[in-house]
Design a protein around this nucleic acid. Structure first.
Lengths: 132, 132
DNA sequence: TCTTTATGGGACTTTTTTAGTCCTATTTAG
DNA sequence: CTAAATAGGACTAAAAAAGTCCCATAAAGA
């Protein structure tokens, strides 16, 4: 439980790599995939997603790749996780209005409490924080 | 991400139900399953697990069921989650020594930080806390 | 003592989610 | 032009979660 998916893991690895190369250099998906033993196609998709979110800047063509765009200090972990994995929450039911147990459910508020606590925690941490 | 499994959800629902019935009453798996629309066999397994962990006390035979045993104040959420779902951690790699990326991995300590923060948070909350 | 209703638990199947692959465009440096 | 990169849809495979089936044991009550 409370596991992150590979997408997040790969994104963090890639961002750290790109950042370490500095602003003037470009890192390609293939280069990163090779360096860390990550499936190239899958990493490519993750990087494309980060590019769509304006976190990194894509450069097309040969010798292309990505460089940093957004300051990682400005991205909190809740947003970062949600961008890659969808809603952060302990239970589906808070995002799924079709829950068929609304009436009888006796744990909604308990779960919301844990939920809020975790979100609050992640809100206060930036992607940059976890890379320090 | 950060989702709890149904096991935990069912366990919380059941514990709250059993507790609400008071010490002198017994709640059967079937009674609880019917009341909340939970698959009975699945709930049965969850309750058996809680019984093995001495959280509830089983009573066999007809008119049997379960009653509370351990004080829910004394069970923190980390232990509770782990008992039902295995290790609480963001990534498998911290529990899986076969990880083939040890050498190149550049995110171990970042992830450990998030991990520790969440565990610390859950350590400080008891099962009773979330039911208040 | 037999029947019924409960827990205990192994083995299995189905469903859902995650991970990974395949294929085809498009862009652009050389 | 060609080669190497991003962009992205569609698909397949693998893993995890959810749920089912089946049988054993316990014990209350007729």
């Amino acid at each position: 439980m409370l596991k992150l998916t590979r997408k997040v893991e790969y994104a963090l690895i890639a961002l750290r790599h790109i950042q370490s190369k500095g602003d003037e250099n470009i890192s390609s998906a293939k280069e990163i995939a090779d360096a860390y033993g990550i499936p190239a196609q899958l990493l490519a998709k993750v990087l494309q997603q980060l590019a769509r979110e304006k976190i990194i800047d894509p450069v097309q063509g040969p010798a292309g790749g990505y460089r940093m765009k957004k300051d990682l200090e400005s991205i909190n972990l809740t947003d970062f996780f949600e961008l890659l994995e969808g809603p952060v929450g302990l239970m589906d039911c808070f995002f799924d209005s079709n829950c068929n147990q609304h009436a009888q459910c006796n744990i909604k508020s308990p779960i919301l409490k844990i939920n809020d606590s975790i979100r609050t925690l992640l809100d206060k941490m930036s992607v940059a924080d976890v890379m320090k």
